[in-house]
Design a binder for these strands. Sequence first.
DNA 1: CGATCTTACGGGATTCGTAAACATA
DNA 2: TATGTTTACGAATCCCGTAAGATCG
Lengths: 303, 303
Amino acid sequence: MNISLVQLRAFIAVSRYGSFTLAAEALHRTQPAITVQVKQLEENLGLKLFDRTTRQLRLTTVGLELVPALSAMLHQLDGVIEISQNIRTQRTGVIRIACLPSVASSFLPVHIAEFRKQHPGISFLLSDALGDKVISMVTGGDVEFGLTDTHPNVGDLDITPLLEEQMCALFLEGHPIQSAEQVDVNRLSAHDLVLMAHGSNARRIVDNAFAAQGRVAVASCEASYMSTAVGMVQAGLGIALLPRSGVNLQVDGRLRARLIQAPGFSRQIAIVKLKQRSLSPSAESFVQLITAASKDQQKRFNT
Amino acid sequence: MNISLVQLRAFIAVSRYGSFTLAAEALHRTQPAITVQVKQLEENLGLKLFDRTTRQLRLTTVGLELVPALSAMLHQLDGVIEISQNIRTQRTGVIRIACLPSVASSFLPVHIAEFRKQHPGISFLLSDALGDKVISMVTGGDVEFGLTDTHPNVGDLDITPLLEEQMCALFLEGHPIQSAEQVDVNRLSAHDLVLMAHGSNARRIVDNAFAAQGRVAVASCEASYMSTAVGMVQAGLGIALLPRSGVNLQVDGRLRARLIQAPGFSRQIAIVKLKQRSLSPSAESFVQLITAASKDQQKRFNT
DNA sequence: CGATCTTACGGGATTCGTAAACATA
DNA sequence: TATGTTTACGAATCCCGTAAGATCG
């Protein structure tokens, strides 16, 4: 015969209520059931826990010593159960995500805010890092999933394409490029370009795209902040090449934007997670939210 | 269906060993039993705890979160069980006793030392207090039992006589009292007396015994410490009236002692405990030891 | 007596082990 | 195919509720 939670709960209830009958009510059991459980616990421990006559009930010295520890233990267990219920119902929890800085700053925040409206108890632990670091955090189990550009040399990972991080050409209304048949490296090379500074992700994409065509991207102006680049365009300094996410809300007034469909001007951002490792219910919901959102977004975007 | 310790232990074992098979060995169960228990726990919590194929086993994010808390919980339970085993086998424990100062200083120490030879893990919490306080500590549950002189107005208490705290007459060899038929108030009044100072228990007994015979105890010398009183007797200053426990080991050389059998010269010291409240196994043993010891002592003592 | 705990017993659920089916490297 | 997990099923055990017995105030 083995000590069981039923026995322990019976013991604690009786010690708390000072009566088998009351304890039975509290536990929604009949009174004989409690008697039996307490008796079995006493046998299991080899200790008398209560001194009892039919009219008086008192804890033994030993029983008195055991109550606090066992009570704390059961309380702790109840806590764990409650936590797991909260996790299940997504009322509480932490979602740990590793992602590229560009994704962390542009794509994710709105969706996190959206998600937290429905699940205020869920907190996000965002680690922004570069591609390799993102992958290693996923494989190391530091995060539930990562958002990064697709890597070639990956094993043991599930990779689900999420969105295309595309580039835009941003220019003043009436600029020749507006009516151009197609925006590509050749066409862009003919104009003054406002580019993000070296070292930024956006610049790297531009440089690579140009290099793939045997060209070099020459900037008439460089900016470290996207808002600066936008200002330069408004001042007529040229065409800015920016990540789409950076100009979504900036196209107003005399500014116009066109997606650059030419090859090389985009990166595939994917959800990366360990193969066959389940996400927490919260993370699962969030992934569904961002995949749905990214599909919507792809459709909504026009010139 | 309810969460059980079996399920929790299975879960923790699997998470620790990373395998159902190994966990089963550790728990001395067959492997299918473990599968079933873990599965039931998952159903009870409504959460998937492991991602498993037949060849690979990994904790879910959620499972990983629950392991430390549950592990700690089980560890705590094991601790309580171990403690209760130690209490049962008297390898560990605390015995709380309230007793009169005279008992605490003379009678108890040797028996505590004796008891601790057999049970080194048992510690004693001695509260020395006067009669009423001893009773109130017993009724208040602050101690397991008390050692005090019998009180008249007690209800709800078990009172077991333990020993007679008797008085001795201590004198020089050849003193007239040595050959006296009987040592009583009348006889003592004829001699110089060395008495303990006012306020001590010993003095109170002497005063009361004299008062009961319509006499007043007159001291030729008073002492605060028993060793002083003994010194005075050795110096020929008179007969000392001391608690027996104080002279047990001092009767040597030219000193002689006689028990004072006269009425009023003794107090009944009893074991006092709450009626129908069991003692801890350790305390029970100790009570048996001192009752046996006091009987022996009664017999051993001769003049 | 009356209130409370204990014992006895039967039905239903739980747990375990054996055996067979199943899945992955 | 070999190893490790899951499913299926019967036997033993456990747990609960009902009913009757015991005990103290």
